[in-house]
């Protein structure tokens, strides 16, 4: 070992930052698509009858069973079969969004199920219209319930996006490999790449933390609603509500 050469990282900083920017871009687009699709999936699961719920379970079990790298390659080689010839970047984003939609769908469904019963009705009882009830009573609570698990899932999304390097999408991991090919300095390359991922994750967690704080006493309220969570997260006994 010959010591850590910072100048290597400095020399390739443009490359690495391009990669990081691409990762941010891919993550943001995939998040929006996956979350949007997750909402659809979650709402579908509330349709009457056993079929929609069973469909959501099957959908999520299948996607939770298969490694993302394989889903990515199936989509990558499968889309041309279906007559779609898309760029690697688009394929990667679609595959990642599709893969994550199952997870977001489960989170969204859980947040809806966790709403205390009678909230909508009590809003209606004071004379709010259905729309007002949603805006003033339901939505704020949904956001609180959704934030913490969505944050976790989004951190996973950031990390999982590194797999896109295997289909030559120029995100952070890929650019790290390019740098490694040019410099034969794995230590510096992967230290820089890890550091950037770490920063991206920490940044995302920080933003999410701010949002959670802005949402007020979200966590306390959530704990109180959920005795199971209280048993994990709180040192006080949950209040008994009959």
């Amino acid at each position: 070992m010959t010591g850590f050469d910072f100048s290597l990282i400095a020399d390739h900083s443009a490359l690495l930052l391009t990669g990081a920017a691409m990762t941010v871009y891919v993550v943001i687009v995939s998040f929006v698509l996956a979350f949007g699709f997750g909402i659809v999936v979650a709402l579908l699961s509330f349709l009457p009858g056993a079929v929609p719920r069973a469909f959501l379970s099957a959908y999520s079990i299948v996607l939770r069973s298969i490694p993302f790298i394989i889903v990515l390659f199936i989509v990558y080689y499968g889309l041309p079969f279906a007559g779609f010839h898309l760029s690697a970047l688009l394929v990667g984003i679609l595959a990642l969004s599709f893969y994550k939609s199952a997870y977001y769908g489960e989170i969204i469904r859980a947040a809806i199920v966790a709403l205390p019963r009678g909230q909508f009705e009590s809003a209606r009882a004071v004379g709010m219209s259905p729309r007002q009830a949603f805006v003033h009573v339901i939505a704020p609570q949904l956001v609180r319930g959704l934030l913490p698990p969505s944050t976790n899932m989004t951190l996973t999304l950031i990390k999982e996006s590194s797999v896109l390097s295997t289909v030559t999408i120029g995100e952070l991991t890929y650019q790290g490999m390019v740098m490694q090919g040019a410099t034969y300095a794995p230590l510096e390359c992967f230290a820089a790449v890890s550091g950037l991922y770490w920063a991206l994750c920490a940044g995302t967690a920080w933003i999410a933390g701010r949002l959670e704080r802005r949402a007020g006493l979200a966590q306390k309220a959530a704990i109180d609603r959920n005795p199971l969570a209280a048993s994990f997260l709180s040192f006080e006994r949950p209040k008994v509500r009959r």
Partner: peptide, 29 residues
């Protein structure tokens, strides 16, 4: 909806809105 406020309903489970303070529970409607 316009008529409903004429009847004040106190539910068995109360159904307070957990994301609002006690005061805001009363102010909001």
């Amino acid at each position: 909806d316009r008529m409903r406020p004429k009847v004040g309903m106190v539910f068995q489970q109360l159904n307070l809105w957990p994301h609002l303070s006690a005061l805001d529970n009363v102010v909001k409607p």
